[in-house]
Design a protein around this nucleic acid. Structure first.
Lengths: 186, 186
DNA sequence: GTCTATATAATGATAGAC
DNA sequence: GTCTATCATTATATAGAC
């Protein structure tokens, strides 16, 4: 009875890396096995429903990570501007300055996107909600705060696409910089 | 000697639809054959180097379309604000109000993105250049015009991603509306 | 320029031993 | 919980007839 080689969070972390790099359609079970160090059969032990279940679990893992690293800190008593700065720092690190792709975007662009629709929509909404709350905390009208929050997510995702297409990460860096000013502006 | 069933632009048009819907990794040769009504062997007659060549040709077809429908009109003598409006109308139609994906984004998100890097970068740059020219025409400093142009492309691409993830096309509609005001603002 | 038939490799997924 | 071996299916790509 061999012991597990990796903990479940470790496995999911590696798989998130893989899907961010190759996308869902582009990552084969062979890739998945290699990136985790597990054989295919072991994978089906952990994820009996196969590749689709793997992606859903990885999405869930991301939601947990986002909650801890991105959303929890937003509910502290710190000044909203500080909290926005912290969020943008975390985002900048997570995407490595525009060099790494977004899991949400990669799954949106997959053939089975409809299967992932619910968790994808929830992840985007949670993210937007967190930024909206900052705006409201800053005294912005709810509607304005909402639009600014949507705009933040839109610009992050768009900048990642344009960076991937042009190879010019300056676009992402500038997006982050601009958002520090614009999101909570009066 | 059977006659060709479709002209080359017709073939490329259908394939563009297919890749926008399924992505490069998600569209199989069987899908490609079905969408064009051609057998696999016929496909290899038209595109001897296979699937990768198909995607490159489709990208070229898009560049031609963009040149005619998007960039040419920008070089007319019309007032810049009118021309921006026209571009945003064309974009809105092309993406069907946020319901259809962007070919550039789908190819950026493919496993072989590096193969498409050059034409992808060129397409993005040409697009940004065209918008930048409008800004300069409007009296904006070149640097400002450039940033606004990048921002337009970023927000379009990002809005498409968020729409695909949330199913809420309002985000795209609002992005288009906002851009009408912000891109050429003094 | 299209077709049918096929080659060959890779795909997602299972069976059963340990 | 992992492994090796294998399954049926699908993938991209060719050969050669018409």
């Amino acid at each position: 009875m061999p012991a597990p080689l990796l903990t479940r969070p470790e496995i999911l972390g590696r798989l998130m890396e893989l899907f961010r790099e190759k996308g869902f359609d582009g990552a084969s079970l062979a890739d998945i096995a290699k990136s985790t160090g597990l054989g295919k059969s072991s994978l089906y032990h952990h994820f009996p429903k196969g590749k689709e279940e793997i992606a859903l679990e990885v999405l869930g893992h991301l939601e947990t990570q986002l909650e801890e690293a991105l959303f929890q800190p937003m509910r502290s008593a710190a000044p909203p501007r500080k909290k926005l700065d912290r969020m943008l720092d975390t985002i900048d690190r997570f995407y490595e300055g525009g060099k790494k792709a977004c899991l949400l975007e990669r799954l949106c662009a997959s053939v089975d996107a409809r299967r992932f629709r619910r968790p994808l929509g929830r992840a985007f909404d949670t993210w937007i909600d967190a930024v909206e709350a900052l705006g409201v905390e800053c005294g912005l009208a709810r509607k304005v705060a909402r639009q600014r929050a949507e705009d933040l997510v839109v610009r992050i995702e768009g900048a990642l696409v344009v960076c991937a297409g042009t190879g010019n990460t300056a676009v992402f860096t500038r997006a982050i910089r601009d958002l520090r000013q614009s999101v909570l502006a009066p």
